[in-house]
Each structure stands twice: as C-alpha cells, then as structure tokens.
Nucleic acid binder design. Sequence first.
RNA 1: GGAGGGGUAGCGAAGUGGCUAAACGCGGGUGACUGUAAAUCAUCUCCCAUCGGGUUCGGCAGUUCGAAUCUGUCCCCCUCCA
Length: 375
Amino acid sequence: MKDFSYTLIRKDPHSNARLGEMNVFGKKVKTPVFMPVGTQATVKFLSPEELKEIGSQIVLANTYHLWLRPGEDIVREAGGIHRFMNYDGPMLTDSGGFQVFSLSDTRKIKEEGVYFRSNLDGTALFLSPEKSIQIQEAIGADIIMSFDECIPYPADYAYTKDSTERTLRWARRGREVHSRNDQALFGIVQGGEYEDLRRYCAKELVKMDFDGYSIGGTSVGEDKPTMYRMIEYAVKDLPEDKPRYLMGVGTVYDLLEGIERGIDMFDCVLPTRIARHGTLMTSQGRINIKRQIYRNDFTPLDPECDCIACRQYTRAYLHHLFRCNEGFGMRLLSIHNLRFLLHLTEQAREALANDRFKEFKEEIYARYQYDERGF
RNA sequence: GGAGGGGUAGCGAAGUGGCUAAACGCGGGUGACUGUAAAUCAUCUCCCAUCGGGUUCGGCAGUUCGAAUCUGUCCCCCUCCA
C-alpha cells in the first residue's frame, strides 16, 4: 500500500473547486497548490531555504534535463534528487514529454518512443515510456509523470485521436514497469480540444488506476475559452479521491479558473522566467521594472506583498539592478513572483475553507487589472 | 618649430566616388514570455511624417552627372622628434 493519498476536505458549493490535502509519503501538501519549477534541480536563483520561506510546498524537476546532465545515475549516486539538491520537501518530476514537444523540430514519434536530438550537443536520443519511468525512478522524486505526447494546437481530430491513443498505450507501458512503491505515478490526460477524446482519455487512464491525473496539452497557443473547455472536459470523469494536476499553467487568471474547475495542482515557469526578464506580478497588475518610469520610484514593488523583495527594496533599486544586469535583481523578482502566486493559492484555500471562493475570485478580478493574457 | 596620425549619429567603431540615413557593438526606448535550449528573444533609436519628405559624416570653398569618401584651406585632437 502506497503512502500517497488525496483527501478532499471541502467542495465549493458554487463550483467544482476543491480544498484538499495530499499525503506525499508522510509529507503534507495543501491543495490547491502552486509548484515552482526547478528544471535542473534548482529553482533558478532560489535556495531551498528561500523556497520554504516563501511558502513553497512542493517543487518540480525535469527528467529530460537531468537525464542529459548530470545523468540519472549521478543523481541516484547522490542519494536521490532530494539529497542531491538539498531539498527535503516533496518533489515531482515531469516525464520529458514536454521537451519532446518543445525543443525538437526534428523529432520522430514512433510507437516505441521518440527519436530526437539533444539540445546540448545534437546527439541522437531515444526516449520511451519505459525509459522515462526508469530515469524517474533513479532520480527519485515523490511524484512522477507518465511519458506522453504534448499535442500542439491546433491539431486536427484524426491526429489528436491517434496521438491520444498512443499516449494511453504509453501510459499503460509506463505503469507496468514502474516498481517503486515510494513514488506516486500520474497519468496524463491528452485529447486536444475535443471533448470526446479528453473524456475518453481520462476514463481510460482511470481504468489503469493512477495515483493522480494530470492534464496536459493546454496553454500551447489556444485561446482562453478553449483552454478552459479542455480542462472541463478532462476533469469530468476523474475520480474525486485523486489529485488533478494542470501542467504548465501559471497566470493569475488561469490559476483561479483552473481551481474553479476542480484543479488541485499547478506548475509553471512563467513567474520565474518573467522575473528574470524584469516583469513582476503584483496586486495592481503586471509591472515591467525595466521601464524608465520606475527610475525614481521609491515605493515597494507591491505594497501588499510580504516577501523580502517588497519589504526591503524599492522599485527604483530593482530598476537599477536590472539596468546593470545584476543577478540579485533577478533573484529578488523571482522570489517576489513565486511568493505572489503562492500567496494567491493560500488566499484561495482560505476562501474555499469559508465557502467563498467565487467571491474571492470576483474580488481579485474586480480589483486587479490584468489583461487578456491573465497576469 | 619638425615628422606622422586622426576628427563619422548619445558613445565606441566600420565605410574611403553612386548599391549609404551610413555596417556592427554599447547605451537608450518599447514589447514578448504558461509541464524552462529563455539572466532570453523581438523591435525601434538623425528630424518630421501614413505613403513620403528634410537635414547629415569637424568648418568653409572646390572637383564631379554624383562626395562621408577626391582637392584646397581653416579649426581641433593624438603620437614621436626638437
């Protein structure tokens, strides 16, 4: 019996939103949760201590990148990913499926797996469902993902159907070789924009009985209504007693809309990436700290935020750091953006506990000025 | 005083008769970024403007159909020798 479970604490009376808690092999994770992304066994610019300080409960790492460098054997030799990066909280690895989609235009998707080339040196590589699971077992995260194909958008029905069926076969193959009892394995719902395919995929995965279910293939160029529909389709047939993870999503709007539709877990590089590029998410909307109007703005980044960057530094100072291309500026903004989203999910959980999620969402929307991109 | 080198857009620096409003870099403006090939990328940066037009390459005067590019002269800067 795996020491992994999801407990539904409270259902929102007005939507599909859920307040819950995951037991991840003895470690608790309150949901809905936002998970910072630490692709190469580090959340860029942040230490594990800082992650805890800002309220991060669980972080991601990436199978593909760690497989290439330093190699999963090194991570295993280090005693697993937690010891390797000195992070003792829960961890999750993505399967590498997304990299197949994102970093190779010369990939060949076959039934047995995917042939493609290394982004580092062009070496010919092959990744399969079995191999992905083996690597993830060696890396040793608490939660691991099935190897899937992230279908691009738009994709026609025929292709989406073939791909989704292949992803299902891959999910089964991965499930069969997964052997660690101290790791949870999630299946990934694909199916593109098509309701019948998303529902079919979800139902088939549920038959295989995974520890949790991810929703993939969203936020790949589709418009918001389409994306939200995909989520609705995918969630429809998922069991209540298992966590649902919307992969790669992390704008303010998407988080709230996802939660409302029954999502428990999110991850996204957006907060850390835009932070490194000088953009921050604030309670007043988005700010590009590099703009010249902040040159002599000695107010806090976000007056309502409790993070160290907002408490101790001014916009003018951050503006200056970005002008000088100083890493400290990227670090402070990364801390802030993560804290901002983490705080947002904390507020959402509190609202759920009080049966007022809808009101909370409306408050955010009414008060804050986000644009159509959602942050 | 003598010999040599040089003055190009905010800065640095190419160009050495037409394809040049003038490469490139920096600086500056603006934008993008959603399971991280991303401290990255795109775009603008003489002036006015929608096409398009108007002024430029230290100053002035020339040569030429045509000059940042050739000639004369003046101004300024640098190096070496006295």
